[in-house]
Design a protein around this nucleic acid. Structure first.
Lengths: 135, 135
DNA sequence: GACCCATGCAATTTACAAAAGCCGAAGAAT
DNA sequence: ATTCTTCGGCTTTTGTAAATTGCATGGGTC
């Protein structure tokens, strides 16, 4: 529903992959250690990222993860939404507007505007933007 | 930390006051009933709103609340922040940036940008905007 | 086939949102 | 002055979601 540790860790993980040599397969243990993130938690997050194609998994010895596409093609919005589904600034936007009070409809209109402004920022920044800022 | 029921109810409450005849003192029970909000919860919220001067309280028989200033002078941001303090899009922005990892600093930079965009919307809309939309 | 690493689900702990309850204080009406 | 009404502040309960941990499973490499 909002920006939590899961999204934070997910972004860190993808950022880490983005800074590795191209083609290298990186295991969770390495990401977890370098970014100081609980490994099992990261595992769950990467399952989502894998399902949406942002990362690719490789099983077995010397397995791990690689990026599904180049980091300048991965927006922050994609990462967030593949981890937790559609982003809503408030719970009340999750429910359909049918039969709600006039005050609520008015508030929704406002919140939709606010949310739109936020999603615009989320979708206009890529993982590459973030890794570039690191230096 | 994010947009919760408390802020929702607070905005509804102030919107209701804004639509009442000027000078009328409105008790919580009336607001609660009309906006379908638990009265005791609303009471707690209005304490905060009162402390920050957005509403004025009047005790005793025929007591209640009035607006502290006209509804076109009350921004949504003021309402939110008087209820829950400074608005942060994510917990990690609440902590000082000292001694944090490069990845975290980079993420913070991004989140601050996103949050700024959101706060701009919050501060550029007033309660009057919302009540106007109701009709 | 032994070892490594991802997969998937279950269970747990922790934290905070949401709400209700209680008693006290202030003010108006009489 | 007494009584009634309404806010004030604190405490406690309840509910739900976040944040983690654990374990059994399965695919791959050597």
């Amino acid at each position: 529903m909002q920006f939590t540790k899961a999204e934070e860790y997910g972004i860190f993980g993808i950022m880490y992959l983005a800074t590795q040599p191209k083609g290298k397969v990186t295991p969770l243990s390495e990401i977890s250690e370098n970014q100081h993130v609980p490994e099992k938690f990261l595992a769950k997050i990467f399952q989502s990222l894998c399902r949406s194609g942002l990362v690719r998994s490789h099983r077995g010895v010397k397995g791990g993860f690689t990026l599904g596409k180049t980091s300048d093609k991965i927006t922050v919005k994609e990462v967030i939404e593949s981890i937790q589904g559609p982003y809503y600034i408030s719970k009340c936007l999750m429910e359909p507007p049918d039969g709600q009070s006039p005050a609520m409809l008015s508030l929704r209109k406002f919140l939709e505007r606010a949310q739109g402004s936020l999603l615009k920022v989320f979708s206009s920044h890529t993982i590459k933007d973030l890794t570039d800022w690191q230096d």
